[in-house]
Design a binder for these strands. Structure first.
Length: 859
RNA sequence: GCCCGAGUGGCGGAAUGGUAGACGCAGGGGAUUCAAAAUCCCCCGAUUGAAAUAUAUCGUGGGGGUUCAAGUCCCCCCUCGGGCACCA
């Protein structure tokens, strides 16, 4: 009897797939194409068990689609630019390029033993000049389309990494990588005009039917559309040149509840005042200093400074009197107009502010049936503002227009038209989404391919001079951008006039690299960014798989890029939404084992040092450890599972099988030693079963039962595999394996069953499946065999057992022929002992028969 | 604060409104073995019960409701997780 020897089996089949170029993707119009993609990895140095889960899921989809007759594209590449390479160069010397390519080589060698059905011929890294050169070419195209611009901008400056961060990269006021408190600086920066697409990116979300609702919602909130009114107050007692304040509001219906006007400390008017008034300057400086962490904002008091300026609406509107103009710390310059009117009666923030500065609280509306009408309320009388939802009907005591009773939304619509009718305001739609600042003052990124010429200004590099390659001779001994201090790299000539000029030294945000790699995979060696025919054939990505952490940034940028690429002719029409279906998978977690240390800090123990017994863990010396279940893997907590060691110990198929079993794919799965062991035992059992069947002969009985179970398994497993129900599929496979192991059917039937089992397992455990295929004397690769089809006629049971409920509680059951008439079933049910007893000679009030399902007798 | 999502045995988790707990882990019992490992078989929600294929009672975070029938649908509440946030 041969053993389940993964060290022989797995490399053998991987070599066979390689030799026969099984996974090479070639255009073939005769078959439907299917493009499955997992988010490509950053080459950090080693693969993580999370990679195993991510790529295994993609591989299951790819192999299943392949078996169902699709021409599958399943590529792999490396998101290879970024700061860790520079950090490594700073920490341990060497060059980011060497560090990166060496990591890629290591990780490729670690990934390959997983037996993924990847077309490795399409592999590339984003730091390959062939890739980033095409990106530069596209950047120039975007410039021509007006999708790129420069502006002086207040940026988030990370003082440790010495770089600019996107808003999205600032988390709680700290740099997403360094954790350093972010500072505000003004620099000339490059931007993509993603805001041009705000409306389109928002509207199109509705059509992303196969995206998780959660991700769609997050994107909607991120784009943040709001409809409101923009209008001006006339101001008096203001500096020269300022006779109006433009404000934006989403609640114009509350205008007659206004009791002050507020402007941001960064508002031009505030800046003008600051220049002449030291007290105001001091106040504004204090506002800017305030931390931007969520915590700091929570605690930050509303601060205001009365400028002495007075504001009023246009002369003939009446009602709203002179309003004091405050500089207030809670008003952001980069949203709306940087100025608001405050309505303390219907806004918590304004309410807080009004209380503090003793400003009037004026109701614009009141709850239906209420008789309150506050025109000026001392804070102690009205503790809270009245803030109903926009679809709640309220009664207006100071309406702009429209009936007295209407919902907030109706009132807003009426108010906007009232503003427009009176000619001092207009309806305006605003988005929270800002343009994408892509400049990075780093070395290890794609150089922005432009030249600064004294005479011609900013000039794009000529395309024939691309790629603008990164120079190799750089050092990282001092912070900042090595490109800035390189002696010669910057020096070039103007592509337009030929005079000496300087290269741009900013490089691109690495999110640019990952915003179009999926398109490049369709023709990775093309000498244009894409080959339009290849793109037309392979796009869109039919199934995209990755972590929820990319729900906003990466996916939104990719959606923008697809549109921008279409407008430059790099993608055909219909690719605006590049990912037809998205699946976000959970993490692989692992328990943390810790004991209290002498200094009070916990000591973390490696899993291999802990013996588990009855749910408790003990060290070798008998000390009990605390167990924290399901924690994110972290090197510092010593709870990282190394996939390489797992593959070494159990083989790739076990690792693949385990990460798919137990938990639904979208949820986190906890890696446990016992679970991995169990997976390994099961695969051993299947292998043993196959050996047994291969060696067996002869006749048996009850083939039909086995074949029925087989077709049921085909049905159930297929359903699971096709819908990301991998854990459910695996449960069915366990069940079918048990049935087969116990079956006394004939050799022919059992052989058919094990072949089907292998086929059904092949997306998850491809090596073992190939092995069984061969053991049973089949020729060719199981990978090339067609997916089994369930025979409908064998799925139908001859007889069914139906529970009988009496008043909704299960009391008995009857077994009847599956096709029995409802009336017959009713008759049988009424004759059932339990029913007869319960009826006690009476008649049921109601008798419900759901054919094939259940009988309910209501008494 | 706002917006989502989730609460089912000791654990991970199954369950088109139709027999709650599939499958796996852990646990218990047995077979095999000189013994062990491996393997195979059986039991395994709680309560009551000496026990039993008990046709007993309770049971899917809590409380109401719709329905012949609710883990599943509706309303309120609690807890946990995630996202966003002085966004006017």
């Amino acid at each position: 009897m041969s053993n389940y020897d993964t060290k022989t089996i797995e490399p053998k089949w991987q070599a066979r797939w390689d030799e026969s170029e099984t996974f090479l993707a070639v255009r073939d119009e005769s078959r439907p194409k299917y493009y499955v993609l997992e988010m490509f990895p950053y080459p950090s140095g080693r693969i993580h068990i999370g990679h195993v889960r991510n790529y295994t899921m993609g591989d299951v989809v790819a192999r299943y689609m392949r078996a169902t007759g699709h021409n599958v594209l399943h590529p792999m590449g490396w998101d290879a630019f970024g700061m860790p390479a520079e950090n490594a160069a700073m920490a341990i010397g060497g060059h980011p390029k060497d560090w990166t390519y060496s990591n890629i080589a290591t990780m490729r060698e670690q990934l390959k033993p997983l037996g993924l059905s990847i077309d490795w011929s399409r592999e590339f890294a984003t730091c390959d000049p062939e890739y980033y050169g095409q990106q530069q070419s596209m950047f120039i195209d975007f410039m021509e389309k007006g999708l790129v611009y420069r502006k002086n901008a207040v940026v988030n400056w990370d003082p440790i990494d010495m770089t600019v961060l996107a808003n999205e990269q600032v988390i709680d006021g700290k740099g997403w990588r360094s954790g350093a408190e972010v500072e505000r600086r003004e620099l000339v920066q490059w931007f993509f005009k993603i805001s041009d697409y705000s409306e389109e990116l928002l509207d199109a979300i509705d059509n992303l039917d196969n995206w998780p609702a959660k991700v769609k919602l997050m994107q909607e909130n991120w784009i943040g559309k709001s409809r409101g009114a923009q209008f001006s107050f006339d101001i008096e007692n203001s500096p020269e040149g300022f006779d109006k304040i433009e404000v934006y509001t989403t609640r114009p219906d509350t205008i007659f509840g206004a009791s002050f006007v507020g402007i941001s400390p960064d508002h031009p008017l505030a800046k003008a005042l600051e220049a002449n008034d030291p007290a105001i300057a001091e106040f504004c400086a204090a506002c800017r200093k305030g931390g931007t962490t969520a915590e700091a904002l929570d605690k930050a008091e509303k601060l205001g400074y009365d400028t002495g300026i007075r504001a009023k609406l246009g002369p003939d509107v009446g009602f709203v009197g002179d309003l004091p103009v405050y500089i207030a710390n809670f008003i952001l310059m980069d949203y709306g107009t940087g100025a608001i009117f405050g309505c303390p009666g219907h806004d918590q923030r304004d309410h807080d502010f009004a209380k503090k500065y003793d400003l009037p609280i004026i109701d614009a509306f009141r709850p239906l049936g209420s008789d309150r009408d506050y025109t000026y309320v001392m804070p102690e009388i009205l503790a809270e503002p009245y803030v109903p939802t926009k679809d709640e009907k309220v009664e207006y005591v100071r309406p702009c227009k429209g009936p007295d009773q209407m919902t907030g939304q109706e009132a807003i619509d009426h108010a906007i038209s009232w503003f427009e009718d009176h000619g001092f305001g207009k309806g305006v739609t605003k988005y929270r989404l800002r343009d994408w600042g892509l400049s990075r003052q780093r070395y290890w990124g794609c150089p922005i391919p432009v030249v600064h010429c004294d005479d011609c200004g900013v000039v794009p590099e000529k395309k024939e001079n691309l790629p603008v390659k990164l120079p190799d001779d750089v050092t990282f001994d001092i912070p900042g951008n090595p490109l800035d201090r390189h002696p010669t790299w910057r020096d070039t000539e103007c592509p337009s006039c030929g005079k000496p000029a300087k290269r741009e030294t900013d490089t691109m945000d690495t999110f640019v690299d990952s915003s179009w790699y999926f398109a490049r995979f369709t023709s990775p060696r093309a000498d244009t960014p894409t080959d339009i025919d290849d793109a037309a054939y392979w796009m869109n990505v039919d199934q995209y798989i990755g972590g929820i952490e990319h729900a906003i940034l990466h996916l939104l940028y990719s959606r923008f890029f697809a549109r921008a690429m279409r407008s430059c002719g790099h993608l055909p029409q219909g690719c605006e939404e590049p990912f037809d279906a998205l699946f976000t998978q959970g993490m692989v977690t692992h328990a943390i084992f810790k004991t209290p240390g002498d200094d009070g800090r916990p000591v973390y123990h490696y899993p291999e040092d802990v013996d588990l017994k009855d749910g408790k863990g003990f060290l070798k010396d008998g000390t009990e450890v605390d167990i924290i279940p399901s924690a994110k893997m972290s090197k510092s907590k010593n709870n990282v599972v190394d996939p390489v060691a797992i593959i070494e110990q159990y083989g790739a198929d076990t690792a693949r099988w385990f990460v798919l079993s137990d938990s639904p794919p979208e949820r986190d799965v906890e890696w446990t030693a016992s679970g991995a062991e169990a997976a390994y035992k099961h695969l051993n059992r299947v292998h043993r079963l196959s050996t047994e069947i291969a060696e067996g002969t002869g006749t048996g009985s009850d083939d039909e039962t086995l074949l029925k179970a087989m077709h049921k398994a085909i049905q159930d497993v297929t359903l699971g595999v096709a819908s990301f129900g991998f854990n459910a599929s695996i449960a069915k496979l366990y069940g079918f394996t048990n049935t087969l192991a116990k079956s006394k059917a004939s050799h022919a039937a059992r052989r058919e069953a094990i072949l089907t089992l292998a086929k059904l397992m092949s997306p998850m455990t491809p090596h073992l499946a190939e092995e069984i295929w061969t053991m049973q004397g089949e020729t060719g690769l199981i990978t090339d065999a067609a997916w089994p089809k369930a025979d409908e006629s064998l799925l139908v049971e001859d007889s069914v057992t139906m529970p009988i409920q009496i008043n909704g509680k299960r009391r008995s059951e009857i077994t009847v022929p599956a096709d029995m008439e409802k009336a017959e079933v009713e008759k049988l049910a009424l004759a059932n002992d339990a029913v007869v007893k319960a009826l006690a000679g009476g008649q049921p009030k109601k008798l419900i028969v759901v054919p094939g399902r259940i009988v309910n007798v209501v008494i």
